[in-house]
Amino acid sequence: MAATTTFTITPEKEASQLQFFRRQFLTTPPAVSPKDFDLRGKTAIVTGSNIGIGLECARQLLDLGLTTLILAVRDEAKGDAAAKDLSAGRTSLQPGQIQVWKLDLSSYPSVTAFAERARTALPQLHYLILNAGIYRVNMVINPATGHEEDMQTNYLSTALLVLLFIRVLSTKNAPASPGKIVMVSSDTAGWTTFAERDADPLLPAFDDKTAKWDMQMRYGASKLLGQLFLTELARRIPPSVAVVNAANPGFCYGSGLTRDAKGTLLGYVVDAYARIVGRSSAVGARTLVDAAVRKGRESHGQYVEDGEIGPMAPIVYKPEGARVMSRLWKETLDELSFAGVKEIVGQFSDRQ
């Protein structure tokens, strides 16, 4: 089980609705200042960066002087439009400073091809911010993998990227200054009922078409699995190889996450709620940039929120969570074994 001794708040209180509203209305994530961090000579990849939080994260990295920015997007035309937006008013941009690369998280071949491109084409890579995500209103099964799409995008493909890029980052950074991977997390990880927790095997339970569908619980479960995976990963991969953390930008309007409901009554209700309770995507992006740029080895395997390291969902710290974590880790590595992830973990576990 992960330790809770360094936290100033209990996991249970952190996961409360009252605490969520306090953060949304009374807390503003601190911005990373160019006076404190100069990213000249650095390279970063931001997934899902053509809109919302990802786009604003990319903008803030450029504001810090980032030399090379890779916009990893499913739709390259939208990526090109985002690059044009980011370039506006930046007279000192150099050719190739902003690049658009295709990445489709619904496709394992796309994920592995993307990682291989980064390995061979980038002379250096310092930051990988995994912002891309999906929030399905109704259950949709990915025809290529057979998995429910929230789980495919938010958990399985994201876990595959993390594992593949651990190897990539290890070859492009020295142990004294390791590269960083930021997994975007969510408050909802602490709210989900996680009805599938006792299923054995675990992952197939999320693909059961006969089970009751709840879009909020499923999205939260996909983010909870990310927290459980990260905790187990940090036990095996030392921060000298790569620092991997999870960052929660908070509930933001303009993120595009609820695009599945666009044009429906539900979509209008969610958009209205977001405008009342939500932060701007630019404010939410500050936490991602902070987790990548400001946070160091102390954040390895940890959850970052509003500039501070805090507790993940309560189950992560309980004996029940440890049992689920062990099952999830094995099943995840089995699912992704086609990409050599077991060998990657074995290679770097020896460096503990």
Score class of each variant (00 low, 15 high):
13 K>E: 14
52 G>C: 05
32 V>K: 03
28 T>A: 11
53 I>Q: 13
86 L>T: 07
325 M>N: 07
38 D>E: 11
106 S>I: 03
28 T>H: 08
79 G>P: 10
184 V>F: 07
244 V>P: 07
7 F>M: 07
18 L>I: 00
322 A>S: 13
102 K>D: 08
274 A>H: 04
264 T>N: 10
295 K>Q: 14
312 M>E: 09
28 T>N: 09
336 L>C: 06
34 P>Q: 13
180 K>N: 03
145 T>Y: 10
115 A>H: 05
3 A>H: 12
119 R>Y: 09
63 D>Y: 03
272 A>E: 00
48 G>Y: 10
133 G>M: 02
347 Q>W: 02
11 P>R: 00
106 S>M: 01
187 D>L: 09
162 V>M: 01
269 V>A: 15
338 F>E: 13
317 Y>Q: 07
207 D>S: 14
84 K>Q: 15
27 T>M: 14
131 N>W: 04
139 M>P: 01
215 M>I: 00
134 I>M: 10
53 I>E: 08
290 D>C: 06
315 I>M: 13
136 R>A: 15
329 W>L: 12
26 L>K: 06
134 I>A: 13
48 G>D: 06
71 L>G: 09
13 K>F: 11
128 L>G: 05
285 A>L: 10
171 T>I: 00
118 A>Y: 03
250 G>Q: 11
8 T>S: 14
84 K>H: 04
18 L>C: 00
248 N>I: 01
119 R>N: 12
257 L>D: 06
